[in-house]
């Protein structure tokens, strides 16, 4: 064999060897599976451009797997699988990290909203407190105004009461003056009557029967106004009464009365003095003093109202009770 021919045979054998070796390393199912996983990873737009180093290492490991000898192939396959899974996990971790940041931002937004609501609530509470304060101030102002008005009203009422009291006082004075004038008028009328036409003696003694006893009432006109002295006609009437009393032995009780004009002490004194004047007169006509118990009753036991002049005239009297 020539040397050139020998070398040709060597080259041919080497070429066949290499070709057979390459034929054994054609992509098999595992390589296709792993490359498909990487392609899917690359096709995912959400994972584009991330985990570049891990993807490169995974591709290199697949290339190593493709070139690995039969003896080394299980190791190469295992390494390729580890690299591909690593690339997948590292790639998928990127959007997860982004999602984690988004959740943090969401939390911050929630807390911010909560803070905003807290601030809003605080503002509302503050506004409410302010309104309540204003309402209280207005209420206090209203109360103050009401108090002032009540004070003014009370002052007006006190002034009105004072004026009313003053009016009543003046009215009382007027009535007293009127009564005084009426009394004086009555006395004047009595004097005029006595002066113009002397009454009959019997007319001065009114005879009544009370509880089986005979009571003679000597009218007030028998006396001078405000004095205990008897008029002459009254003395004549008492003389006739004494003539009758001589026929009996019983007591003859004498009681003097006045109207309500003037003070009580004066009226008491005047009534007693008039009763004593009657007693003295009866004693002069022969009636024993022991038969003549005498007393002054003042303005007690009125027989008529003291509001009119006629009534007061009837109350001014001396009653002589024959027992």
């Amino acid at each position: 064999m020539k040397p050139a021919s020998f070398m040709a045979w060597i080259l041919l054998g080497f070429t066949l060897f290499v070709g057979l070796a390459q034929a054994e390393r054609l992509p098999d199912a595992d390589i296709v599976r792993l490359e498909t996983q990487l392609q899917q990873l690359d096709a995912d737009p959400a994972l584009a451009g991330v985990a570049g180093l891990e993807r490169l290492l995974a591709r290199q490991s697949i290339q190593v797997l493709a070139k690995a000898r039969t003896r080394d192939r299980p190791y190469a396959l295992r390494i390729a699988e580890l690299r591909v899974e690593t690339a997948r996990l590292m790639a998928e971790a990127v959007p997860l990290a982004e999602q984690s940041r988004t959740l943090d931002q969401e939390r911050d937004a929630i807390l911010l909203e909560a803070s905003r609501r807290d601030a809003e609530r605080a503002r509302r509470e503050s506004e409410l407190l302010r309104l309540q304060t204003v309402a209280r101030e207005e209420e206090a102002e209203r109360n103050a105004v009401t108090g002032r008005r009540q004070q003014e009203k009370a002052a007006l009422e006190a002034e009105a009461a004072k004026q009313e009291a003053e009016h009543l006082r003046k009215l009382a004075e007027a009535r007293e003056l009127e009564a005084d004038l009426a009394r004086k008028e009555a006395e004047l009328a009595s004097q005029i009557s006595a002066d113009s036409e002397p009454p009959a003696a019997t007319a001065l003694l009114d005879k009544q029967t009370r509880a089986g006893k005979t009571v003679y009432t000597l009218a007030g006109s028998a006396f001078a106004s405000g004095k205990p002295s008897l008029s002459p006609i009254a003395r004549d009437a008492l003389g006739k009464l004494a003539a009758q009393l001589k026929h009996s032995k019983g007591k003859v009780r004498i009681e003097g009365y006045t109207d309500s004009q003037g003070n009580d002490v004066a009226n008491q004194k005047l009534s007693l003095e008039r009763a004593m004047a009657v007693r003295t007169t009866l004693m002069r006509w022969g009636i024993a003093a022991s038969r003549l118990p005498t007393s002054g009753q003042g303005e007690d036991k009125p027989v008529s109202g003291n509001g009119t002049a006629a009534g007061r005239a009837r109350n001014r009297r001396v009653e002589i009770t024959v027992e």
Partner: peptide, 10 residues
């Protein structure tokens, strides 16, 4: 080991 780290992070 690198896969373990990747799994941990994931």
């Amino acid at each position: 080991a690198e896969l373990a780290v990747a799994r941990y992070r994931y």
